[in-house]
Amino acid sequence: MDTQPSFEQMLAENDGRIRYIASRYGGPGEREDMYQEILLQLWRSYESFSGRASIGTWVYKVALNTANSFVRNRVKRNDLHHSISNHVAQQSEAEHTGCQADILTQFMDRLGDIDVGVLIMYLDGLKSEDIAEVLGISDNAVRSRIKRIKREFEQNFVGDES
């Protein structure tokens, strides 16, 4: 455990990705709650971190699992209607602006949770093996998803240049 960073250092190094996952999966008004829940789960499981994967990969795994559980619980609370209406409002807002971040957000809104996780980690530079470990799917499945996601993005947002 000597090579393992302190909890505070781990949080400082991964705060951006934790906040991004919370903002991506949390609806309006619940992003901070999701962020806090992710921090709580990281704290609870920090001592059991075995070091088999990198600390960044482990953070992704805990954060994405927590976010997915949070979303499932939201749906169970019959908050789906509220979530859908907010999603439509956000999508409409994103369509009126043309910056790259809004285009990426609009595209990610079309993807399922696993594909969003794959894309977030891919854009953050994780190797397909690490993404596979975080999501509990095969390396080949990750590479196939990345190819499909790229193809879908090109078809929907790049268009035909000829």
Rank of each mutant, 00 (worst) to 15 (best):
Q4C: 13
F7R: 13
L11V: 12
N14C: 02
N14T: 07
D15N: 04
I18E: 08
S23I: 07
R24I: 05
G27E: 15
G29Q: 06
R31Q: 13
D33W: 06
E37N: 03
Y46T: 05
Y46C: 04
E47I: 02
S50R: 11
G51C: 03
A53D: 13
V71T: 15
R74E: 14
K76S: 04
L80S: 07
H81V: 11
H82R: 14
H82L: 14
I84G: 11
S85H: 11
S85N: 12
N86P: 08
A89V: 15
Q90G: 07
S92M: 10
H96K: 10
G98M: 02
Q100M: 09
Q100E: 13
D102W: 02
L104F: 01
T105Q: 06
Q106T: 10
M108F: 01
D109Y: 07
L111Q: 03
G112Y: 00
I114Q: 07
V116R: 03
D124Q: 05
D124A: 04
L126E: 12
L135T: 01
G136Y: 01
D139N: 08
A141N: 04
V142K: 01
V142S: 01
R143T: 11
I146Q: 07
I146V: 12
R148G: 03
Q155E: 12
Q155D: 11
N156V: 10
N156I: 09
